[in-house]
Design a binder for these strands. Structure first.
Lengths: 214, 214
DNA sequence: AACAGGTCACGAAGGTCA
DNA sequence: TGACCTTCGTGACCTGTT
C-alpha cells in the first residue's frame, strides 16, 4: 500500500495528478517537462537558500536549482532524454512520412495510379534545392485551393511546406500531381452528415473515388 | 531436465511465459515481436552504456540496441523474417480469399442461385438487372436483404441511395465499374453500421487496395 | 501444434502554446 | 511553466498457414 501511494504521488513535488514513469522515476507532467527542459542545460543555476529549498507543488517553481537537484536525487536519469541529433532524425522521418501520405492522397484524388512503392530506400535525404521558389508558390496555390481551412485542417500541410523549403525535387513531384488534380474533394463530401463521423465519411469518399464516378 | 528448463525460458530476457521457437531460437512473445520489428530496420540504435546492458524481463525495454544484439548472439536469424514483398503477396491472397467468400454471401442474398452465367470469365458476377427495370429497385432489394435495420443502422445507406435517385446512369456505371473491379461488398461493410469500428474500416481499406485502384 | 505475421491498447518519449 | 497533444515502441492476444 505504501508503494501504491508512492506511485500515485510525484516523487519530486508531491503532485497527485498525471503521475507516470518519466525518465525512470514517478513524477507529474510538469516535473517531467521541467526535467526534460532543464537537465541538459549547461548554464549554472543559482539558489538563494544554499540549495536547501523544500520542493512541493507550491514551491516547485521558485527554485529551479533545488528542483533539478531533487529530480536527480530521486533517480531521474539524464540518459533517458533523447539527444538532439536523435530528435532531429525523428522529426525528419516524420516529415517524410507525412509527405508520402500527402502524395498518396493527391495521387488517389487525381486518379494517378502510377504511384509506385518501388522507392525502397525511404531513409534517404532529399537533395538540396538551388533556390526554386516557384515550387513553393505552386504549393501555396494548391493548399489554398484544395484545403478547407475552416478548422485549421491545412495547418499540417503548411508545416510540411515550411519544412520542405529548399527541397525542390519532391516539390516538383507535388506540382506535377497537383496539376493533375481536376477537382477538390480532399476535405470530405459528407462531413456534416448526421451520424457519420469524419473517418467514416472519408471512407465513403474513398469508395466513391474507387468507382471513378466523381 | 536442464535442457527442458532452458527451453522454457526466453533465451533473450529470461521470461518464462509463452516460450516458443521463434526465428530459430527459444524466446518469449515480446522478444519475438521485438526482433520481427527491429531486426530489419536500418536506423542506427544508440546505447548509453557502451553496449553492455544486461537484458532481463525488467530491463529488456530500456535498451533496444543491446536487446537486439543479444537476439543475434543467441542465434535468432534475420533470414527467417519474411520479406515485405512476401508479406504483401500473402496479404493479397488473403484478401482475395475473403472477397470470394463475400461474393458468395452476396450471391446468396441476391437470390442468384443459378451458377450458369453466360459470362464465363470470372465465375463471380454481380446479379444482372434485366433491361433498365431501374437500378434503384435493385438497390432497394439489395438494401432490404443485406441490411440489419434493427437499430436504424441502415439509414445512412438509404440516404445515400436517396441522394443517388434520378442518377440511375451513375448507378449503372457504378455497377459496371464494380463488376470490372470485382468489388461488391462496398455497402456490405457499411451494413453493420453502428459506428464503423477500426477493424471494419480497415477492411474497407483492404478491399480498396485489392482493386488496385491506388 | 508450431510458428510466421497482424492488431491494438497503452506507456513514455517529444512538441505546442496560452 | 504546465496542461494537453502527437508519435512511436511494446507486448498480450489474435489469425492464418504448414
Amino acid at each position: 500500500m505504501d508503494v501504491k501511494v508512492k506511485e500515485r504521488l510525484c516523487q519530486v513535488c508531491g503532485e497527485s495528478k498525471q503521475i507516470g514513469r518519466n525518465f525512470c522515476a514517478f513524477t507529474c507532467e510538469s516535473c517531467k517537462a521541467f526535467f526534460r527542459r532543464t537537465a541538459l542545460k549547461t548554464i549554472q543555476l543559482h539558489c538563494a537558500s544554499n540549495g536547501k529549498c523544500e520542493i512541493n507543488v507550491q514551491t516547485r517553481r521558485l527554485c529551479p536549482k533545488c528542483r533539478l537537484k531533487k529530480c536527480f536525487d530521486i533517480g531521474m536519469r539524464i540518459d533517458f532524454i533523447r539527444s538532439e541529433t536523435d530528435n532531429k532524425i525523428r522529426r525528419q522521418l516524420m516529415i517524410e512520412k507525412k509527405m508520402k501520405k500527402l502524395l498518396q492522397d493527391m495521387s488517389a484524388y487525381s486518379g494517378d495510379s502510377s504511384d509506385n512503392d518501388s522507392n525502397a530506400n525511404s531513409g534517404q535525404e532529399f537533395p538540396e534545392s538551388d533556390g526554386n521558389s516557384s515550387a513553393i508558390d505552386d504549393m501555396d496555390d494548391w493548399i489554398e485551393h484544395t484545403c478547407d481551412d475552416s478548422q485549421g485542417s491545412s495547418r499540417q500541410v503548411m508545416d510540411i511546406k515550411y519544412c520542405l523549403s529548399g527541397k525542390s525535387d519532391i516539390l516538383t513531384e507535388i506540382r506535377q500531381k497537383a496539376q493533375k488534380l481536376a477537382v477538390i474533394p480532399m476535405c470530405k463530401t459528407l462531413t456534416d452528415y448526421n451520424g457519420i463521423n469524419q473517418l467514416e465519411s472519408r471512407r465513403i469518399d474513398e469508395l466513391l473515388v474507387a468507382t471513378n464516378v466523381f
